[in-house]
Amino acid sequence: MSSGDSGPSSSKQLVQQPAAAGRSPNQPPLLGAGGRKVIVLKSGDEEEFEVDLLDAMQSRTLRRAIEDGCGDGPMPLPNLTGPVLAKVVELFRRHRGDPRWADELQETEKEGMFKDYAPQKPTAEVKGFDREFVSVDRDALFDLLRAANFLEAPGLLDVTCDAAADAVMNMTVEEVREYFGLVNDYTPEEEAALRKQHEWAFQ
Protein backbone atom coordinates (compact mmCIF):
# COMPACT_ATOMS: atom_id res chain seq x y z
CA MET A 1 0.00 0.00 0.00
CA SER A 2 3.00 2.33 -0.17
CA SER A 3 2.46 5.22 -2.51
CA GLY A 4 6.17 6.00 -2.91
CA ASP A 5 6.97 9.40 -4.32
CA SER A 6 3.40 10.33 -5.10
CA GLY A 7 2.59 13.96 -4.57
CA PRO A 8 -0.23 16.21 -5.67
CA SER A 9 0.77 15.87 -9.31
CA SER A 10 0.44 12.10 -9.42
CA SER A 11 -3.22 12.23 -8.51
CA LYS A 12 -3.99 12.96 -12.14
CA GLN A 13 -3.57 9.31 -12.91
CA LEU A 14 -6.01 8.32 -10.26
CA VAL A 15 -8.97 10.62 -10.72
CA GLN A 16 -11.12 11.56 -13.64
CA GLN A 17 -10.41 15.26 -13.44
CA PRO A 18 -7.13 16.57 -12.03
CA ALA A 19 -7.67 18.52 -8.84
CA ALA A 20 -7.06 22.22 -8.99
CA ALA A 21 -4.27 23.09 -6.62
CA GLY A 22 -3.81 26.20 -4.52
CA ARG A 23 -7.38 27.34 -4.13
CA SER A 24 -8.26 29.77 -1.44
CA PRO A 25 -10.17 28.25 1.47
CA ASN A 26 -12.93 30.81 1.01
CA GLN A 27 -13.82 29.78 -2.50
CA PRO A 28 -17.09 27.89 -2.96
CA PRO A 29 -16.77 24.24 -3.92
CA LEU A 30 -15.44 23.78 -7.42
CA LEU A 31 -17.69 23.07 -10.31
CA GLY A 32 -16.74 19.81 -11.95
CA ALA A 33 -17.73 18.44 -15.31
CA GLY A 34 -21.37 19.15 -16.08
CA GLY A 35 -21.46 21.96 -13.56
CA ARG A 36 -21.67 19.67 -10.55
CA LYS A 37 -20.20 20.66 -7.25
CA VAL A 38 -17.00 18.92 -6.33
CA ILE A 39 -14.78 18.85 -3.27
CA VAL A 40 -11.13 17.89 -2.89
CA LEU A 41 -9.98 15.17 -0.51
CA LYS A 42 -6.35 15.00 0.55
CA SER A 43 -4.80 11.74 1.69
CA GLY A 44 -2.23 11.37 4.49
CA ASP A 45 0.50 11.14 1.89
CA GLU A 46 -0.61 14.40 0.25
CA GLU A 47 -2.47 13.06 -2.76
CA GLU A 48 -5.50 15.07 -3.79
CA PHE A 49 -8.69 13.67 -5.22
CA GLU A 50 -11.58 15.54 -6.69
CA VAL A 51 -14.93 14.03 -5.72
CA ASP A 52 -18.42 14.91 -6.76
CA LEU A 53 -20.00 16.49 -3.70
CA LEU A 54 -23.01 14.20 -3.88
CA ASP A 55 -20.78 11.14 -4.06
CA ALA A 56 -18.80 12.28 -1.03
CA MET A 57 -22.08 12.55 0.89
CA GLN A 58 -22.18 8.73 0.93
CA SER A 59 -19.76 9.09 3.84
CA ARG A 60 -21.37 10.32 7.04
CA THR A 61 -17.98 11.59 8.20
CA LEU A 62 -17.49 13.66 5.06
CA ARG A 63 -21.09 14.82 5.13
CA ARG A 64 -20.71 16.15 8.65
CA ALA A 65 -17.50 17.93 7.65
CA ILE A 66 -19.14 19.45 4.56
CA GLU A 67 -22.15 20.56 6.54
CA ASP A 68 -19.79 22.18 9.03
CA GLY A 69 -18.28 24.15 6.16
CA CYS A 70 -15.01 22.22 5.84
CA GLY A 71 -15.54 21.39 2.18
CA ASP A 72 -14.19 24.61 0.74
CA GLY A 73 -10.50 23.78 0.64
CA PRO A 74 -8.82 20.40 0.25
CA MET A 75 -10.12 18.26 3.09
CA PRO A 76 -7.27 16.45 4.86
CA LEU A 77 -7.81 12.78 5.66
CA PRO A 78 -4.50 11.93 7.35
CA ASN A 79 -5.37 8.33 8.17
CA LEU A 80 -6.10 7.32 4.56
CA THR A 81 -3.34 6.63 2.05
CA GLY A 82 -3.52 7.74 -1.56
CA PRO A 83 -4.11 4.27 -3.02
CA VAL A 84 -6.88 3.54 -0.49
CA LEU A 85 -8.54 6.90 -1.07
CA ALA A 86 -8.33 6.41 -4.84
CA LYS A 87 -10.24 3.15 -4.54
CA VAL A 88 -12.80 4.62 -2.18
CA VAL A 89 -13.45 7.63 -4.43
CA GLU A 90 -14.02 5.29 -7.35
CA LEU A 91 -16.48 3.20 -5.32
CA PHE A 92 -18.43 6.32 -4.34
CA ARG A 93 -18.67 7.24 -8.00
CA ARG A 94 -19.87 3.78 -9.00
CA HIS A 95 -22.43 3.66 -6.19
CA ARG A 96 -24.01 6.93 -7.24
CA GLY A 97 -27.79 6.59 -6.98
CA ASP A 98 -27.61 3.05 -5.63
CA PRO A 99 -30.91 2.48 -3.81
CA ARG A 100 -29.23 0.24 -1.27
CA TRP A 101 -27.74 3.33 0.28
CA ALA A 102 -29.47 6.25 -1.37
CA ASP A 103 -32.41 6.33 1.07
CA GLU A 104 -30.30 7.99 3.68
CA LEU A 105 -29.28 10.71 1.25
CA GLN A 106 -32.85 11.37 0.26
CA GLU A 107 -33.62 12.00 3.91
CA THR A 108 -30.96 14.67 4.18
CA GLU A 109 -32.21 16.41 1.07
CA LYS A 110 -31.86 20.15 1.36
CA GLU A 111 -32.86 22.67 -1.23
CA GLY A 112 -33.20 20.02 -3.88
CA MET A 113 -29.49 19.26 -3.66
CA PHE A 114 -30.11 15.59 -4.42
CA LYS A 115 -32.79 16.06 -7.00
CA ASP A 116 -30.75 14.29 -9.67
CA TYR A 117 -29.65 11.58 -7.29
CA ALA A 118 -32.49 9.33 -8.38
CA PRO A 119 -32.08 5.83 -7.02
CA GLN A 120 -31.30 3.27 -9.68
CA LYS A 121 -31.19 -0.45 -9.26
CA PRO A 122 -27.62 -1.70 -8.87
CA THR A 123 -26.61 -3.03 -12.26
CA ALA A 124 -24.62 -6.17 -12.89
CA GLU A 125 -21.76 -3.82 -13.69
CA VAL A 126 -21.87 -2.27 -10.21
CA LYS A 127 -22.04 -5.68 -8.60
CA GLY A 128 -19.09 -6.77 -10.71
CA PHE A 129 -17.21 -3.66 -9.65
CA ASP A 130 -17.94 -4.43 -5.99
CA ARG A 131 -16.55 -7.94 -6.39
CA GLU A 132 -13.44 -6.64 -8.11
CA PHE A 133 -13.09 -3.92 -5.47
CA VAL A 134 -12.51 -6.46 -2.70
CA SER A 135 -10.45 -8.92 -4.73
CA VAL A 136 -7.38 -7.93 -2.74
CA ASP A 137 -5.20 -9.59 -0.12
CA ARG A 138 -6.08 -9.63 3.54
CA ASP A 139 -4.04 -6.59 4.57
CA ALA A 140 -5.40 -4.48 1.73
CA LEU A 141 -8.93 -5.56 2.66
CA PHE A 142 -8.35 -4.37 6.20
CA ASP A 143 -7.03 -1.04 4.93
CA LEU A 144 -10.36 -0.68 3.15
CA LEU A 145 -12.31 -1.82 6.23
CA ARG A 146 -10.58 0.80 8.37
CA ALA A 147 -11.32 3.42 5.73
CA ALA A 148 -14.98 2.32 5.65
CA ASN A 149 -15.16 2.49 9.42
CA PHE A 150 -13.56 5.94 9.53
CA LEU A 151 -15.67 7.34 6.70
CA GLU A 152 -18.91 5.73 7.95
CA ALA A 153 -19.98 4.99 4.41
CA PRO A 154 -22.73 2.32 4.38
CA GLY A 155 -22.03 1.05 0.86
CA LEU A 156 -18.29 0.79 1.46
CA LEU A 157 -18.95 -0.90 4.83
CA ASP A 158 -21.31 -3.46 3.32
CA VAL A 159 -18.96 -4.36 0.50
CA THR A 160 -15.89 -4.71 2.71
CA CYS A 161 -17.61 -6.46 5.64
CA ASP A 162 -19.22 -8.91 3.22
CA ALA A 163 -15.78 -9.68 1.82
CA ALA A 164 -14.29 -10.17 5.29
CA ALA A 165 -17.12 -12.59 6.14
CA ASP A 166 -16.60 -14.42 2.85
CA ALA A 167 -12.92 -14.82 3.63
CA VAL A 168 -13.60 -16.76 6.85
CA MET A 169 -16.70 -18.63 5.70
CA ASN A 170 -16.54 -22.34 6.58
CA MET A 171 -13.33 -21.89 8.55
CA THR A 172 -12.89 -23.48 11.97
CA VAL A 173 -12.57 -21.23 15.02
CA GLU A 174 -8.81 -21.80 15.02
CA GLU A 175 -8.48 -20.92 11.35
CA VAL A 176 -10.47 -17.71 11.80
CA ARG A 177 -8.27 -16.70 14.74
CA GLU A 178 -5.20 -17.22 12.64
CA TYR A 179 -6.60 -15.34 9.65
CA PHE A 180 -7.69 -12.32 11.71
CA GLY A 181 -4.66 -12.51 14.02
CA LEU A 182 -6.89 -12.93 17.06
CA VAL A 183 -5.46 -13.94 20.42
CA ASN A 184 -7.68 -16.36 22.28
CA ASP A 185 -8.37 -14.55 25.55
CA TYR A 186 -10.69 -17.20 26.96
CA THR A 187 -9.41 -19.59 29.58
CA PRO A 188 -9.52 -23.18 28.36
CA GLU A 189 -12.42 -23.82 30.77
CA GLU A 190 -14.39 -20.83 29.48
CA GLU A 191 -13.88 -21.83 25.90
CA ALA A 192 -14.89 -25.42 26.57
CA ALA A 193 -18.05 -24.22 28.32
CA LEU A 194 -18.92 -21.92 25.45
CA ARG A 195 -18.35 -24.63 22.88
CA LYS A 196 -20.57 -26.93 24.90
CA GLN A 197 -23.26 -24.27 25.10
CA HIS A 198 -23.23 -23.69 21.34
CA GLU A 199 -22.51 -27.29 20.46
CA TRP A 200 -25.18 -27.24 17.74
CA ALA A 201 -23.30 -24.55 15.85
CA PHE A 202 -20.24 -26.77 15.55
CA GLN A 203 -22.04 -29.72 13.93
Binding site: A165, M169, D185
Partner: peptide, 17 residues
Protein backbone atom coordinates in the same frame (compact mmCIF):
# COMPACT_ATOMS: atom_id res chain seq x y z
CA UNK B 1 -19.02 -8.59 9.47
CA UNK B 2 -20.66 -11.57 11.16
CA UNK B 3 -24.03 -10.36 9.88
CA UNK B 4 -22.89 -11.59 6.47
CA UNK B 5 -22.26 -15.10 7.80
CA UNK B 6 -24.96 -17.75 8.03
CA UNK B 7 -26.59 -17.45 11.46
CA UNK B 8 -25.02 -20.69 12.67
CA UNK B 9 -21.51 -19.54 11.78
CA UNK B 10 -22.17 -16.17 13.36
CA UNK B 11 -23.10 -17.89 16.64
CA UNK B 12 -19.95 -20.00 16.37
CA UNK B 13 -17.87 -16.82 16.12
CA UNK B 14 -18.64 -16.17 19.79
CA UNK B 15 -15.87 -18.67 20.58
CA UNK B 16 -13.19 -16.55 18.89
CA UNK B 17 -12.51 -14.32 21.88
Amino acid sequence: IISFLPFKEAVRSSCLG
